[in-house]
Design a protein around this nucleic acid. Sequence first.
DNA 1: CGAGGAAAATAT
DNA 2: ATATTTTCCTCG
Length: 697
Amino acid sequence: MPSTSFPVPSKFPLGPPAAVCGSGETLGPSAPAGGTMKSAEEEHYSYVTSGVGSGLPLSSAHPSLPAPCHDLQTSAPGVSSAGYGAALDGGPSSYFLSSGGVRPNGAPALESPRIEITSYLGLHHGNGQFFHDADAEDVLPSSKRSPSTATLNLPSLEAYRDPSCLSPASSLSSRSCNSEASSYESSFSYPYASPQTSPWQSPCVSPKTTDPEEGFPRGLGACGLLGSPRHSPSTSPRTSVTEESWLGARTSRPSSPCNKRKYGLNGRQLSCSPHPSPTPSPQGSPRVSVTDDTWLGNTTQYTSSAIVAAINALSTDGSLDLGDGVPVKARKTALDHSPSVALKVEPAGEDLGATPPTSDFPPEEFPSFQHIRKGAFCDQYLSVPQHLYPWARPRSPTSYTSPSLPALDWQLPSHSGPYELRIEVQPKSHHRAHYETEGSRGAVKALAGGHPSVQLHGYMESEPLTLQLFIGTADDRLLRPHAFYQVHRITGKTVSTTSHEAILSNTKVLEIPLLPENNMRAIIDCAGILKLRNSDIELRKGETDIGRKNTRVRLVFRVHVPQPNGRMLSLQVASNPIECSQRSAQELPLVEKQSAASGPVLGGKRMVLSGHNFLQGSKVIFVEKAPDGHHIWEMEAKIDGALCKPNSLVVEIPPFRNQRITSPVQVSFYVCNGKRKRSQYQLFTYLPANGNALFLT
DNA sequence: CGAGGAAAATAT
DNA sequence: ATATTTTCCTCG
């Protein structure tokens, strides 16, 4: 017999008036994860569906794309590459080229042999421009966690955040309410349409540039990404040079973000800047120049310079203000994304800026630059201070252009004309992501046991295309790259799908060939999910999102279909949400079934509890509480281990009361492990022995 | 490697 | 005091 205690045996109130009957109901209300998820999912769908394409030509992606193409040689025939290249060339390509050329590093990189096979290397090479790599590396360390060296001052950091948040962000904040700032950005993109990359850029740029830190963070972010991949894989992340720094750091978690950052910086030279700028005014001073140079420098110097100029202009004005407030935060995301590459590409935009194609962007096609109008977007979506605008706009001076491919946070349609990008097999709703400190936890799987699959319908050409995959947000109304998760490329005998990694701004993108011979269908068995430490990401300068409880993601697939007119039609589709955290022991358990009572007394019931991760040594405590909250009785249930199934537990409440039960009683229970309460009280209706319900749904 | 559990560390 | 996150450990 389980121990039973009856603190107060008195009466058996029927229970709260509105007693929830049945576990089922209970679930509804409480249902933590599950319920939430679902709803979320639904939402997503709707969003997705509705999503209009907007084109943002940022670039971040581009760079990578092109490169990849080259690289692709290996895996994918030139097609893809051709496609990209063509596209690029067509319009913006020049930009690309230029950018590439510009970059000191870039060129070499490209030329040099790329062996992409290694995801890591491959990426870099592929991207060609990825100076990121380097950066990334540097960054990585930071991401990892630098111990606390003293690098940053918290204050500064905070300052950064706050400021940004405040002004521009404020609007964001609202959004943030929802959840994150990033959405903000996204929204931008939408309306924005402006010609250049604008929304971002301006914000982004300025912010970034502004703060050295930003640079860092971003960098870090990128690095992080890279790094993770690199290291990634799992086991030990730290190998690279950079690592050292962080390794050391790593040992202890950086309690303060600041420190972390520094490290990140360390990785690079960047580190230096962080401090200074931050402290004084985060954004303000240091801003642009510093960051850009160091950071962007490698890659895109070209662009960066332009950007910088632009930024400066902007900043100048209100740089301080902006810097502090607006840009950073608001944009943070944007910035992040765009950082190096993106910025460059976009160029055209600004000029165009004025002209906004507008609303209708052809969702799919992004000629090269579509831009959203800032204004519109702002107005509609955010209530951002107008002045901000101005700033943003200013950046236009530069015009980079090329918008080649839409930025990752651009919302794109899943179908257009004859084409439709569709997820044929959805991933399971739960996939525990792995940390850099862990080994891979494998590829995302499908519910049925296989793997998710995606197919492009309506494509009749013989040229292979490249399917892009990245980890996107699940909760936001707008789909955008998830700041705390990155796709992780999985290779091995069990993986049949070839893939190539690329990094756009701070987002790792897996490029998978879509072959005509396979009906443009790809089985995604090469995609795992890497979790980045919240503390590392939140440090990033522009990052406004918070990682806590932000554990759901979506797999986002994109394909760019070359059009006869030289344009590129970009389609995107996102999967159902995927919960990436370890199943919580606190998940609320539910009464799946309850036997008829053994007699007309309270107790004597056997029940099947489910939906909880019953840990070893778990105890289930049943309790009936009076309206005033006091426990009328409570007792530990007897656990029938023999009947346990995964995630379910059979328990028994032994008969303990003579009093006859004639009507349903509201009883609740909770699970505890040792002395710790592992779950909240879950209400269910304890049915009378003569009740008709043997089973609760 | 790939999971699944948990303890340790943090954040609220 | 809890709720979550991140690091460790163990098992096949």
